[in-house]
Write a protein that binds this DNA or RNA. Structure first.
Lengths: 156, 156
DNA sequence: CTCCCTGCAAACTGTTTGCAAGTAC
DNA sequence: GTACTTGCAAACAGTTTGCAGGGAG
């Protein structure tokens, strides 16, 4: 029985299968990604990792994220003006909703898009083979906070 | 009667109303954007503009795109690893399909997403107020070309 | 013991800013 | 004539690469 796909053990196993060595740096970065509900920049992950493993380098974060992305364990998230966010990838949950106030990200199901693809094919001649749906709005916490105090901001 | 929203005259009028001066550089950049069915980087628009107006500077392209984006005449497109594409914005057509072979972009209608937003709200507590749907696939031309010659590539 | 991985420094790319000269109005 | 705009150069931020030392297996 394989461990759950969101666990550290599972990720380390995936890395091992791919022929990667399991170093302290990689372990730390993976833990940071797993325990994070927010799409984070390499710099943010670096800062967080350094609190646990001060010797780590930013370059290693970049290189580890690249590997994790190849393995499908992490995905790149586009938000606002930049696309430098990285987020835990949940298989089978392709769509994302991101809170525009606090930045929290959650995956959701909603794969009734097939009819739309066919409509687009008929109207434009495009053969759709990838889609990318991302919502943004307010998470439940931020809805409460904002209605209580319309000035209170608590970003990331 | 206002000129069509895709015309040079219309864009210049929008700029003028906003208090902008209508310079040769801006005119050239706008023409480049209008006549382009592809999401283009500032550098690409710069190269194209220089063929018409050799004296133009890359910085002016950046500054003009910023202004055009503020006015809603141009939108930023995220594709692949980067998000440095700019594209003519068509009002009321919020969704994009981009050909993954040649890069051609077209807008399409498909605003039956409201039920999905309500489902997401119930399941996750998020109040959705923006959405972003982008498809990628093959345009009709590229489908033909690829079936004729599976090696032929004609990027942008 | 071998080869992969790391961290540092430096190179590199894409974007923004300061400023004096130029130009639309 | 005035104020906005331009293009150059330089600053800046984010990312990638080269390389010698270090650590996993």
């Amino acid at each position: 029985m394989t461990p759950g796909s969101g666990t550290l053990t599972y990720w380390l196993e995936m890395m091992r299968i791919d022929g990667c060595r399991l170093t302290k740096a990689r372990r730390t970065i993976i833990e940071m990604v797993i325990s994070n509900r927010y799409a984070s920049t390499p710099q943010q992950l670096y800062d967080a990792s350094r609190r646990i493993y001060p010797g780590i380098g930013l370059v290693t974060v970049y290189r580890t994220l690249e590997k994790l992305e190849q393995l499908g364990l992490v995905r790149r998230v586009h938000q606002g003006s930049g696309c430098n966010g990285f987020l835990l990838n949940e298989q089978g949950h392709n769509h994302l909703i991101i809170c525009e106030n606090c930045g929290r990200a959650e995956y959701f199901e909603g794969d009734d898009l097939q009819p739309l693809f066919e409509k687009v094919n008929q109207a434009h001649g495009f053969l759709v083979n990838q889609h990318w749906l991302q919502l943004s709005g307010l998470c439940s916490d931020c809805q409460k906070n904002i209605s209580q105090d319309s000035l209170g901001q608590d970003n990331n």
